[in-house]
Design a protein around this nucleic acid. Structure first.
Length: 123
DNA sequence: AACTTGACGAGGG
DNA sequence: CCCCTCGCCAAGT
C-alpha cells in the first residue's frame, strides 16, 4: 500500500491501456501486466479486471497465463474461444493448448516494468 | 465488518 | 513434467 495506490481509483483503465498496445499475433501474461502496474497489484487482480474488459475496445484474447495457455477454457466451452481467436491471429498452440511465450510474448514500449518499486509482490 | 470467489503465479514434492 | 498448496487482492454478499 502506498500513495500511488490510494490515488489510483482508475487502475482498470491503465490495464486496458496496456492491453491495447499488444499487436495482433502477440500476447502478454497477467503477471507481466501486474509488474508494470506495480503499486501492489497482483496477477489475480489483473485477471479480475480482464473479466470485465470491453471486448470491442480491448484485445482481451491476447492476455494469457504464465504457462502460455488461455485461462478461459472453462467459460468458453464447448470450445476455447480465446485460443481459437489467437490461432486465427497466427499464434501456434501445442497439444496441451500452450503456446511458446519466448516467441509470442510482447513487451510494450513506454510501459517498463517497475522492478525498482517491486519488492516481492509476486505470488 | 467478515467471508467467499476468481480469466493468477511460484515453489515444493 | 504434473499436481497441490499457499499467498495475493479487488469485489460482491
Amino acid at each position: 500500500m502506498n500513495d500511488n495506490q490510494v490515488n489510483d481509483k482508475n487502475y482498470r483503465e491503465r490495464v486496458y491501456e496496456i492491453v491495447r498496445t499488444i499487436p495482433v499475433g502477440r500476447v502478454m501474461t497477467y503477471g507481466q501486466i501486474a509488474l508494470i502496474l506495480g503499486e501492489g497489484y497482483t496477477p489475480r487482480t489483473v485477471g479480475f479486471v480482464m473479466h470485465g474488459a470491453e471486448t470491442k475496445e480491448t484485445p482481451w484474447q491476447r492476455v494469457i497465463n504464465s504457462q502460455g495457455a488461455c485461462s478461459t477454457g472453462k467459460m468458453t466451452v464447448p470450445v476455447n474461444l480465446q485460443q481459437q481467436i489467437l490461432e486465427d491471429e497466427g499464434v501456434i498452440f501445442d497439444g496441451k493448448d500452450r503456446c511458446d511465450l519466448n516467441v509470442y510474448q510482447w513487451s510494450p514500449e513506454g510501459f517498463e516494468e517497475k522492478e525498482d518499486e517491486q519488492p516481492s509482490l509476486f505470488g
